[in-house]
Computed example of a mutant assay.
Amino acid sequence: MTATQLGVLFVDDESLPWETVADGVQRKVMTYDANLMMVKVRFETGGIGAAHSHVHTQMSYVASGAFAITIAGETRTVRKGDAYYIPPNVRHGAVCVEAGELVDLFTPMRDDFV
């Protein structure tokens, strides 16, 4: 990740490298400032976003694929075009049902991603 992603106005997706974060899961931070961060996450079928919680508000858009998303103990399958909301400090996780990508938005930005 480069410091130039901080507040970058136009993002060239192809120029950003993927970072492996788990088996079958990669991410790239697209752009951010102190208040908001956009992250693209790519999953292979069967890839797992382990259950966790954080202080950030999160909203996610399913750009492609299908995912079993669990939020506060409730699991639903979401597909391309769907979205979901995760309040701060709520436990959540994902299992990729069909290879695809999520676009995650966090507020405030995730210091732990940079």
Rank of each mutant, 00 (worst) to 15 (best):
residue 1 M to C: 14
residue 1 M to A: 14
residue 2 T to A: 10
residue 3 A to F: 15
residue 4 T to P: 03
residue 6 L to V: 15
residue 6 L to W: 14
residue 7 G to H: 07
residue 8 V to R: 13
residue 8 V to G: 04
residue 8 V to T: 13
residue 9 L to Q: 11
residue 9 L to K: 14
residue 10 F to Y: 14
residue 10 F to G: 11
residue 12 D to Q: 14
residue 12 D to E: 14
residue 13 D to N: 11
residue 14 E to M: 05
residue 15 S to Y: 07
residue 15 S to G: 07
residue 15 S to L: 11
residue 17 P to S: 11
residue 19 E to W: 13
residue 20 T to N: 14
residue 22 A to S: 08
residue 22 A to L: 10
residue 23 D to Q: 15
residue 23 D to N: 12
residue 25 V to D: 05
residue 26 Q to G: 09
residue 27 R to T: 07
residue 29 V to H: 03
residue 30 M to L: 12
residue 32 Y to R: 04
residue 34 A to I: 08
residue 35 N to Y: 04
residue 38 M to H: 13
residue 38 M to D: 04
residue 38 M to I: 05
residue 38 M to R: 09
residue 38 M to Q: 12
residue 39 V to S: 02
residue 40 K to C: 13
residue 40 K to T: 06
residue 41 V to D: 01
residue 42 R to I: 07
residue 43 F to E: 05
residue 43 F to N: 01
residue 44 E to G: 12
residue 45 T to D: 06
residue 46 G to V: 07
residue 48 I to H: 04
residue 48 I to W: 02
residue 48 I to F: 00
residue 50 A to D: 13
residue 50 A to T: 11
residue 50 A to E: 15
residue 54 H to L: 08
residue 55 V to P: 05
residue 55 V to T: 15
residue 55 V to D: 09
residue 55 V to Q: 14
residue 56 H to M: 02
residue 56 H to W: 05
residue 58 Q to Y: 05
residue 59 M to H: 09
residue 59 M to R: 08
residue 60 S to E: 01
residue 60 S to M: 01
residue 61 Y to N: 13
residue 65 G to T: 10
residue 66 A to Q: 11
residue 66 A to S: 12
residue 67 F to C: 03
residue 68 A to H: 14
residue 69 I to A: 05
residue 69 I to N: 06
residue 70 T to P: 00
residue 70 T to Q: 02
residue 71 I to K: 02
residue 73 G to Y: 03
residue 75 T to N: 10
residue 77 T to A: 10
residue 77 T to K: 10
residue 78 V to Y: 03
residue 80 K to P: 08
residue 80 K to N: 15
residue 82 D to N: 09
residue 82 D to V: 02
residue 83 A to E: 12
residue 85 Y to F: 15
residue 86 I to V: 15
residue 86 I to C: 08
residue 88 P to R: 12
residue 88 P to N: 12
residue 91 R to N: 13
residue 91 R to P: 10
residue 92 H to K: 05
residue 92 H to R: 06
residue 92 H to P: 03
residue 92 H to S: 02
residue 93 G to M: 03
residue 94 A to R: 07
residue 96 C to G: 07
residue 99 A to E: 07
residue 99 A to M: 06
residue 101 E to V: 05
residue 101 E to D: 10
residue 102 L to C: 02
residue 104 D to P: 00
residue 105 L to T: 13
residue 105 L to W: 04
residue 105 L to S: 12
residue 109 M to L: 10
residue 111 D to P: 02
residue 112 D to V: 06
residue 114 V to I: 10
